[in-house]
Amino acid sequence: VARHPGRLAGFATLPTGSPAAAADELARAVTELGFAGALVNSTLGTDGSFLDNQRFAPLLARFEALDVPLYLHPAPPPASLREVLYGGLPGPVSSVLATTAWGWHSEAGLHALRLVAGGVFDRHPRLRVIVGHCGEMLPFMLGRIDDVLPPSLTGLAAPPSEYFLRHVWVTTSGMFSVPPVLCSISVFGVDRVLFSVDYPFGANASGRALLDALPISPADKAKVAGLNAERLLRLT
């Protein structure tokens, strides 16, 4: 990154087991190394709790203070949960279903939804979050989520979609077919969708083919291809 600042930017890796230390490392990475934010692998499997837990407040407050985004990435489930949900299947099938085929994405979507339902964005109104894989199933479900989680039930100031559309951006990482990308654009708006590949887990050529195939205007394609990321990550 230091050798090619015009081509590369970095996300920090944080020791989330200690939220205070993670906050300090985020500050070092942003202020001393010039990183654009941090990528946090889902904390459920490693720390036994989601980021809406109050113990993560110092870390989320530091994201706010530094005004950089948190990229919330999936991670494998705890062993006990994996056995309940994915046990009893052939080994390779269980492993893939628990991670890249389904489990990663449903858990990451739940994690993001917990940030909303748990009042994180009310407590941290300047927090910005990125989620991958075309929104981890959330764009498809967001209308129903609003219907069944109204403010009268949640006690929040607004329906969940309003929090998502103020605080969350989605990337196309690893999703190389047109329908889920169009769903993300139609629900979140073209200004909140960022083109992404998933190298080395997905082929870059497939990502480029998706970008070429998107049936949106050239101006909107330019936003998805790079302009949105430039604004969100303050890339120059």
Rank of each mutant, 00 (worst) to 15 (best):
G189H: 07
G37W: 06
V1Q: 12
P159N: 13
R7P: 03
V131E: 04
L110W: 08
V178S: 01
R82T: 09
G109Q: 09
F188H: 05
A21Q: 10
A157C: 11
H124M: 03
A222G: 03
R166K: 13
F63E: 01
T13E: 11
T236Y: 01
V190R: 11
A117N: 07
G37V: 04
A205T: 14
F201V: 10
K223H: 11
T16R: 06
S80W: 08
R82M: 05
L127E: 05
E107I: 02
P160E: 07
K221E: 09
I130P: 00
L110H: 13
E64Q: 04
R62A: 11
L39I: 07
A27P: 02
L210K: 04
G119F: 06
R231K: 15
F188D: 00
G155R: 09
V129R: 09
P15I: 02
G10F: 12
H167L: 06
G189E: 04
G174W: 04
A203T: 14
M141A: 14
D191A: 14
A101E: 11
S177H: 10
Y86D: 00
F56L: 13
S177L: 06
A9L: 13
V68E: 09
V168C: 02
L33P: 00
R126E: 12
L44W: 09
V193E: 05
S173R: 02
T154R: 12
A20Q: 13
A38L: 05
L149D: 05
L156R: 14
A23P: 10
E32A: 15
I130D: 02
P77L: 14
F201P: 03
A61M: 00
L232M: 10
T154C: 15
L39Y: 00
H4D: 00
R128W: 10
T13C: 12
A38T: 12
E136K: 04
D122C: 03
S206F: 11
E25V: 14
A9N: 08
T100S: 09
G88R: 13
G226T: 12
V148T: 14
S217K: 12
N41R: 09
T236C: 03
L59R: 12
Y199L: 09
S177A: 14
F63V: 05
A108T: 15
I185T: 02
A22Y: 07
G174V: 04
F35M: 11
G118T: 03
E230A: 15
V168T: 03
G143I: 08
G207P: 08
A36W: 01
G37C: 05
V129C: 06
L233E: 01
S42F: 00
P180F: 08
L110V: 13
F140E: 07
